[in-house]
Design a protein around this nucleic acid. Structure first.
Lengths: 342, 342
DNA sequence: TACCAAAATGAGAGCGCTCTCACAACCCCG
DNA sequence: CGGGGTTGTGAGAGCGCTCTCATTTTGGTA
């Protein structure tokens, strides 16, 4: 058999070749490539020219092997693809992350993990493919995280479920305060029979937003039984809304734990002929594009998703730079955005 | 300064250490790790045990440097994040790709390129980070592709814009035939003043779907002037729909080049009080979740997006395996799915 | 002009793995 | 029981880069 497709490609130029071309040593070329200050300017010029001439690009594997760094970080998302792509919240976070990374020399590796067996993801991570990891949307059961943390720096989006020791690094909002502001608004506009569609209760974001809901209603002396759990998807929320309306047909307000879920809830409400906000006022959470893309603008608890992504990446990068002054937690502000739905 | 965060991690075990632990040579451990058949079964057992004991995971960089392969492929998407995340079409394709890759030892690197300067993406690719690349959603102006192809095997999703030599590998549907089936349906149900919202005309998918539209109308002896261009986003399509309605208020049918764009168009139609399908029948393209998630089910040209992703990955993997029998093109079937909108 | 510190450069030893050989152990058969 | 295969195993040379150190060059000073 002749050499196949793969081997037919012309070999990439190497450091060695650039060195020969420029008439200097490998070490000097390496210095130029890495921007070391201790190279004579005229040498820098001639080496740069040689690099240009040969169209040289350093080999990542070799560099990574020698330097024991990869210059890349992973974003681990323990959800399935559909959920990941379906929720504009993730889009915003990823955008923030890439924005920060683009300012650096690091690249991002996306690991959406339920499509992979967890096992495969961990092998990938432990095989030295990345210098650090960002973890978002993680659940109580995801104990791969402890493993990960013993291998490399990890930054969480959202308070990790095992945040006992307070030595985790994470970026989050105060979900309790956030949801309280949303639910309080419902109370303030005179609603008295308020229900909620929660996120998964194996995630801090799900739990905390429910806690905020309960706290406000208890303070106001209102019933807290109109609760249905869902999974941060539109269809899950739609089903939960149906269940809730069946069980508590008298509700006059609904707090939904995410914008995406609110689109599902709003669909059911429309279908059932419950006018929003007249019959039922709705407050959502996220302030993602989903809040404004539907027929009715959502009143929603705004969290800076993109900025959170940015902050996560920033935190990780500083950790990787051995910056010892980084704070363990970065709690960002929320605010209530009023639109038509409540 | 003391050793920081990065260096504080315990070093990973190496092949050498496993070899010592098992009392064999490095080469033998390597054979076991790579599943070579020429190792005595009892040796395999003892080496496997040693690997287990040390919790050994082979170092990717070293392996890649020595073998000149990375076991990973890139998915290059020359769009910005928002567009990428916003369109369920991409979600389906990515899902298909990962599904195929999960059966193999390859991993996926997502490069959504407009956030990166093109330059950075190319450097990454050329630095030997991946063995091959998948390119979707590429535009006429994206000439980085030629560069890429000289470096590694590339498979396109959608006929590439420069498909002159017919030596590109790609997976596509017959967009002309697909759109013709959709537009023909509009003609068949008696519509006579048919408009279209197109995709970008610097993309084959945009051009071909428009061509199909024109062809049907010309065959039927109908006017083909009710055309507005958009960019495969919901908001772009909404604006285009407004322009179209302004210019041709008399249209009784609309062919929209993607489901996502149709959501935008449908929104405008609803806002303007044009009943669908009574006043204006709408046919979309993709048959993504967007076609069924709105208030009215879309009649749409169904293309097997997920299967296309799968096929792309499959093609690339076979190319990487030096399979010389792979066909250059894989044209998949479309079908018209009838729902309420037309 | 001679001398020494500082700056610039090069030599060379790895990083952890793969892969080609050479060698050793074993098999069958005449 | 020796020749000629197999088959399994180990030694060792890289893969392309970084980084430490020794060496050379430079420039400032007496």
């Amino acid at each position: 058999m002749t050499s196949g497709v793969r081997n037919a490609r012309p070999p990439q130029p190497t450091l060695e070749m650039v060195a020969a071309e420029a008439g200097v040593s490998r070490a000097t070329v390496s210095r130029v490539v890495n921007g070391s200050p201790k190279v004579r300017p005229e040498v820098v010029v001639s080496v740069t020219a040689a690099i240009e001439r040969l169209n040289y690009v350093p080999n990542r594997a070799a560099r990574s092997l020698a330097s024991r760094q990869t210059q890349s970080v992973a974003l681990v998302v323990p959800e399935d693809m559909t959920k990941f792509f379906g929720d504009p919240y993730f889009a915003a976070v990823v955008q923030g992350i890439t924005q920060r990374l683009d300012e650096s020399d690091y690249t991002l590796n996306l690991l959406v993990a339920s499509t992979d067996p967890r096992h495969k993801t961990m092998r990938y991570l432990r095989a030295g493919n990345v210098d650090g990891a960002l973890v978002i949307s993680h659940h109580t059961g995801d104990n791969f995280v402890a493993d990960l943390e013993s291998t490399m720096p990890v930054v969480f989006g959202g308070r990790p479920t095992n945040d006992s020791g307070a030595n985790n690094y994470f970026v989050d909002v105060d979900n309790i305060a956030g949801s309280m502001s949303g639910v309080q608004h419902l109370v303030d506009i005179g609603r008295r029979r308020i229900g909620t569609i929660t996120g998964p209760v194996d995630m801090p974001a799900g739990i905390d937003r429910l806690t905020g809901f309960r706290r406000v209603l208890e303070n106001a002396g209102l019933a807290t039984d109109a609760v249905e759990h869902a999974d941060f998807t539109a269809s899950g929320a739609a089903a939960a809304t149906r269940r809730l309306l069946e069980r508590c047909p008298d509700i006059d307000a609904l707090f939904v734990a995410s914008d995406l879920m609110a689109t599902g809830a709003l669909g059911v409400l429309a279908e059932l002929g419950r006018a929003v906000p007249r019959d039922i006022a709705v407050v959502a959470y996220d302030d993602s594009p989903a809040a404004t893309s539907g027929p009715i603008g959502m009143t929603t608890v705004s969290q800076p998703s993109k900025e959170m992504g940015f902050a996560m990446a920033d935190l990780l990068l500083r950790l990787l730079a051995d910056d010892e002054t980084v704070p363990h937690r970065n709690i960002m502000p929320t605010s209530l955005v009023l639109r038509e739905s409540a």
